[in-house]
């Protein structure tokens, strides 16, 4: 058995943010996959719909990773990398030829805001082993004043009430009394 005496991702704030970002990622990814044409038009970049659909897949992968993985760090850093791609894509669409560059600029501001949150979260999670609270030692908290050996079976005098007895089949399985 592996050790359980260490605490994983002990920074609850970072974990809460990571979880929220995971759901956000899945939601945004679903939108990009389901409506890439509409989104591309909104940003005045109609030829980018294939790229947006691809980014949708990336977002969903990051989201599922953030929600599922035991170690969330690679997945939050994957979001930071994705943010860089988003910024580059939007920057390419902010030229004077884009009649909707105002909307694109707004999207850029939102991406930068989320990127800042991603970087904050990634930094916190990456620092988690260092900031993990020490595990309190409860190894003396047995609850047995007379010791573990005396405790084992100390209540065998207890008669299970009739309404809480196990079905006879189970007793047979255990080598006890035969079913009636």
């Amino acid at each position: 058995m592996r050790t359980f005496l260490s605490r994983h991702h002990a920074d609850p704030t970072a974990n809460t943010i990571a979880q929220a970002l995971g759901w956000f990622s899945i939601g945004l990814g679903a939108l990009e996959i389901l409506a890439p044409r509409k989104m591309a038009r909104t940003f005045g970049m109609p030829r980018s719909r294939g790229v947006l659909a691809g980014y949708g897949v990336r977002e969903i992968a990051s989201g599922v990773g953030l929600l599922w993985a035991k170690d969330r760090r690679p997945w939050i850093w994957s979001r930071v990398g994705g943010d860089a791609l988003d910024v580059a894509t939007l920057a390419a669409g902010m030229g004077p030829s884009n009649p909707r560059r105002g909307t694109t600029g707004l999207a850029m501001a939102m991406v930068l805001g989320v990127a800042a949150l991603d970087i904050f979260c990634a930094a916190r999670l990456s620092a988690a082993p260092g900031r993990a609270a020490p595990v309190r030692d409860y190894s003396a908290r047995s609850g047995w004043p007379r010791g573990a050996a005396a405790a084992r079976g100390s209540a065998r005098d207890f008669a299970t009430p009739r309404d809480m007895r196990a079905p006879p089949g189970l007793r047979h399985l255990n080598g006890g009394e035969q079913p009636g």
Partner: peptide, 25 residues
């Protein structure tokens, strides 16, 4: 344990709680 089970297995992911469970046996 008091009622005499052969083996008691405790499942969690919080280290302190697992240590406390182990302390009981």
């Amino acid at each position: 344990i008091m009622l005499g089970a052969k083996q008691v297995v405790a499942i969690d992911n919080v280290p302190e709680r697992l240590v406390m469970a182990k302390a009981a046996g």
